[in-house]
Simulated scan of single mutants.
Amino acid sequence: MTKGRVLITGASSGLGLELTKLFAKDGYDLILVARNVVKLEQVKIELELAYKIDIIVLDKDLSLKNSCIEIYDELKNRNIAVDILVNNAGLGSFGLFHETELSKLLEITAVNIDALTILTRLFCRDMAKRKSGKILNIASIGAFQGSAFIAAYYASKAYVLSLSEAIANELKDYGVSVTVFCPGPIKTNFHKAAGKGMSNTAISAEKAASLAYSALRGGKTVVIPGAGLKMMIFGARFLPRRVVVYLAGKLQKIQKQQKG
Rank of each mutant, 00 (worst) to 15 (best):
residue 182 C to W: 09
residue 173 D to M: 11
residue 140 S to I: 03
residue 174 Y to V: 12
residue 127 M to S: 06
residue 153 Y to F: 05
residue 111 V to W: 08
residue 143 A to W: 15
residue 134 K to F: 01
residue 129 K to S: 09
residue 166 A to N: 10
residue 112 N to Y: 04
residue 172 K to A: 08
residue 168 A to K: 06
residue 121 R to L: 06
residue 160 V to K: 01
residue 144 F to P: 15
residue 171 L to F: 12
residue 140 S to T: 00
residue 144 F to Y: 15
residue 174 Y to K: 14
residue 134 K to V: 00
residue 151 A to D: 11
residue 150 I to W: 08
residue 169 N to M: 13
residue 116 L to C: 07
residue 158 A to L: 03
residue 158 A to W: 01
residue 126 D to T: 07
residue 111 V to C: 02
residue 129 K to F: 09
residue 169 N to S: 15
residue 140 S to P: 00
residue 146 G to R: 10
residue 154 Y to K: 12
residue 147 S to H: 07
residue 164 S to V: 05
residue 118 I to M: 02
residue 133 G to W: 05
residue 176 V to E: 03
residue 180 V to D: 06
residue 149 F to D: 06
residue 152 A to G: 01
residue 123 F to L: 02
residue 111 V to R: 13
residue 124 C to L: 12
residue 125 R to L: 11
residue 134 K to P: 00
residue 147 S to V: 12
residue 156 S to G: 08
residue 168 A to R: 04
residue 156 S to M: 08
residue 151 A to I: 06
residue 157 K to N: 10
residue 161 L to Q: 10
residue 151 A to M: 08
residue 181 F to N: 05
residue 148 A to K: 10
residue 145 Q to F: 12
residue 131 K to W: 08
residue 119 L to R: 00
residue 111 V to P: 07
residue 130 R to V: 04
residue 169 N to L: 15
residue 143 A to I: 09
residue 157 K to P: 09
residue 141 I to E: 13
residue 114 D to F: 11
residue 137 N to L: 09
residue 144 F to D: 14
